[in-house]
């Protein structure tokens, strides 16, 4: 009896644990489809964002509505699509589906003043929050 119990218990524990682990992995994998973390490089978004800061970004919102003025977004650099830019939306032309991006620090920013407006469909990620450095944790 006790031997049978002894056998059963490890099995149920094993099942339970793999179920929990599996659920965890699946949840993370699912969340990763629309959540990600990024590191800021460059100073064009100073003082709001500084180089080396870590941000939480999501891409659910823009599947439902276009970006709004004031939001900080990620967009492929029109001049080098392998590079992702982080900029603030400064104007949205809903008709033409074009938006203008700018850095908060215009003197050290290359943005829509140089490369023009970009297509709304090129903007998928929205910046939600900064989670590092700890003393600058903030919703954005």
């Amino acid at each position: 009896m006790s031997t049978e119990r002894g056998r059963l218990r490890p099995l149920s524990w094993f099942l339970l644990r793999s179920l929990a682990l599996g659920t965890g992995v699946a949840a993370v994998a699912y969340a990763r489809r629309w959540l990600d973390v990024v590191e800021v490089q460059g100073r064009s978004m100073a003082p709001a964002l500084l180089p080396g800061e870590w941000l939480l970004v999501e891409r659910r919102t823009y599947a439902h509505r276009p970006p709004r003025v004031g939001e900080i977004v990620l967009a492929a650099d029109p001049r080098d699509p392998s590079r992702e830019l982080i900029k603030r939306v400064t104007s949205v032309d809903g008709r033409a589906k074009m938006i203008q991006l700018a850095g908060d620090a215009p003197d050290s920013s290359t943005d829509s003043r140089t490369f023009g407006a970009i297509s709304v469909s090129d903007v998928r990620w929205r910046v939600i929050a900064r989670y590092w450095p700890a003393e600058r944790i903030a919703r954005l």
Binding site: Q41, R43, S44, L85
Partner: peptide, 10 residues
């Protein structure tokens, strides 16, 4: 630490 880098570019 994120592996993805975004450019507040100039």
């Amino acid at each position: 630490r994120p592996t993805r880098r975004v450019h507040a570019h100039c």
